[in-house]
Design a protein around this nucleic acid. Structure first.
Ligand code: MN
Ligand code: MN
Ligand code: ZN
Ligand code: ZN
Lengths: 148, 148
DNA sequence: AAAAATAAAATAAAAATTATTTTTTGTCAA
DNA sequence: TTGACAAAAAATAATTTTTATTTTATTTTT
C-alpha cells in the first residue's frame, strides 16, 4: 500500500516480495507516490522525476506502475477519459473528478454498503468503481467562470 | 437519444436543434451509432465508415462525437483506460467491462436507488458513473484461458 | 569468475488525441 | 440571385500517449 516508515528498506522488501528488482527508477517512483493523494498521471510522474533521473523514460514509468498495479500495491484510476491516473492506495474507494480544475480527489463514501451484486445477468462481477463528477470546493468558491 | 423512426429527417432535425450542420460525415456517424450497444471507440467508428467515406478523418469522428456528447445526445464512457468509448444512449446507466474480451456491456442495475449524495465533503456532485469489471457470460463459458 | 538466462531500462515505433489549415456552407448586402 | 464575408466543419499536420523492440544491467548457473 506504499506507506513505509523506514522507506528505503521497506520499499525494497515490498519489491522483493513480488519478485521485482529494486532499481533506482522504481524506488524514485514509489517514493514520489508515497502518501501522494493527487492521483498523478504518467506524464506528471515522469516530469517530476526527469530532472533527478535524466535517463528516465516514460516507458519505465509505465512499466513500474503497471508492475505495481498488477501485484496490487497501487491502483489505476480511469475516471479521467483524457489520461490514465494512478493511486498508491489500492483499497477500493470512491473518486471525484472536478469538471473545472480536472483534479481528482478521494471521497469518503463507504463502498462496502453499496448494493452492487456479484452476479448480474450472466456477468461475473469481480470489482467495480464509482466515479463522481462535479465541482470541487476550491472551484465552487470562486464562481467566476475561471478554470483555476 | 438517437432512436429515429424516419432516420434521415429526424437526425437532421436533431442536429438543427443544436445548431449543428447535417453533414454526410455526421449523418453516417449518427446512423452507425443508432441502436448500437457495443460502445465503440473512435477508431472502430472510423474504420467502419472509412470505406464508404474515403475522405473521412479520425479528427472528424472526434469532433462529431464531442459535439453530440456536449449537447447530451450521446455519452462518453471512460470505463476502459485504453481508449475513449461512446454510447448513443445518454441516460445514466451502468456499464460492465469484461477483463478477458474487453467488450463493454450495458448492465441493468437501477442507478436511481444507489445512495450517492449530491453533496459530500464540500464537493458539489453533478453526476456519477458506476463501472463494473469481471468476466462476461460469453468468456466464462469457455473457461480455457483463451482471450476470445 | 564467466556464460547464460532473466529482468528492466531506454529507444524506437505505433496509436490516440489535439491543433492548425483548408474547404465547405450558410448569411447578407449589393 | 450572386458574390463577398463569416462561421462551421472537414482534413491534414502535429503532438501526446502508449506499446513494441532493442539495449543494458542484474541475477543465476556452471
Ligand atoms: Mn484515491
Ligand atoms: Mn451503455
Ligand atoms: Zn476544481
Ligand atoms: Zn468477455
Amino acid at each position: 500500500m506504499l506507506l513505509y516508515k523506514d522507506e528505503g528498506t521497506a520499499m525494497i522488501d515490498t519489491l522483493k516480495k513480488f519478485g521485482l528488482r529494486a532499481t533506482p527508477q522504481r524506488m524514485a517512483i514509489m517514493q514520489l507516490l508515497q502518501g501522494n493523494t493527487s492521483h498523478p498521471s504518467v506524464e506528471e510522474i515522469y516530469h517530476e522525476l526527469k530532472p533527478k533521473y535524466p535517463s528516465l523514460s516514460a516507458a519505465t514509468v509505465y512499466n513500474t506502475l503497471e508492475a505495481l498495479a498488477k501485484v496490487g500495491e497501487i491502483q489505476e484510476i480511469s475516471i479521467d477519459p483524457q489520461r490514465r491516473r494512478f493511486d498508491p492506495n489500492p483499497r477500493p474507494h470512491c473518486h471525484f473528478l472536478c469538471n473545472r480544475c480536472q483534479r481528482v480527489y478521494d471521497l469518503d463514501i463507504a463502498l462496502e454498503d453499496l448494493p452492487v451484486p456479484h452476479q448480474a445477468g450472466g456477468f461475473n462481477i469481480q470489482s467495480f468503481s464509482l466515479y463522481l463528477y462535479g465541482e470541487c470546493e476550491h472551484c465552487s468558491s470562486k464562481d467566476d467562470g475561471t478554470k483555476i
